[in-house]
Amino acid sequence: MHSAAPAKTTLFATYFALIALLALSAAAAKWQIGPLWNLFIALGIAAVKTALVFLVFMQLRYQRGLVRVFALAGFLWLAISGVLTFSDYLTRGWTP
């Protein structure tokens, strides 16, 4: 089933992209534009890095749909936990 595995060049290209993103992330942290923006940039880069690892190193690109759904399910459920928990915290201060 894994006849289509990533080639060596793809692996190295991904690796260098990951290191470049790491450098970017470290540099962006030193360049301060407000804590929230910095956080979003840092998390955005982390998300891109994770996507690269998932798609290439973990070969999600080459997998059938079912495996992709399973890979996404964990993140989706994590989002449920975050969103609904914050539906409490963000509105707790509001007076009815």
Partner: peptide
Amino acid sequence: VWGHHMFVSSQSVYA
């Protein structure tokens, strides 16, 4: 739906 266990726990009434 888990928040329905916490209606009287000082959870936000909007939640």
